[in-house]
């Protein structure tokens, strides 16, 4: 594991820590932020899974030169995951909007 991946891993773990902290709040804004951070942490974790990018070319195949390419699959996975995460976040925003209108305050109380 090289430096870049180490940094990304540390950032991902920080995101998880902050995200969990925020999700445990009662205010809907904090929960939304926390969910966003958790999603991003997962995406970063997958990015690390593509291995070290140093001394590797971008994954554009050409016939003439044979090179070592960066694995593009995790990036495709992340792209899908971002789209799904976006959908879920949009849903949560609307859901919280209805919840806030119903409860007349900005806190969740699942009891």
């Amino acid at each position: 594991m090289n430096d870049l991946n180490l940094i990304v891993s540390i950032i991902a773990s920080l995101f998880v820590a902050v995200g969990v902290y925020l999700v445990l709040h009662r205010s809907v804004i904090n929960i939304l932020m926390g969910l966003g951070l958790l999603t991003h942490a997962t995406n970063l974790a997958i990015l690390v899974m593509s291995g070290s990018p140093s001394h590797k070319a971008a994954p554009i195949v050409s016939d003439s030169v044979s090179q070592v390419y960066v694995d593009p699959l995790p990036q495709a996975l992340i792209l899908t995951a971002i789209v799904i995460g976006f959908g879920v976040t949009a849903f949560m925003v609307v859901f919280f909007y209805r919840l806030v209108k119903e409860n007349q305050h900005t806190e969740v109380n699942p009891s």
Partner: peptide, 18 residues
């Protein structure tokens, strides 16, 4: 909330599998 967190973990596990 629980299902969203579960999905996140699922995705992370998928990364590990890969």
């Amino acid at each position: 909330l629980l299902n969203i967190i579960g999905s996140g973990l699922f995705l992370a596990a998928g990364g590990l599998v890969y």
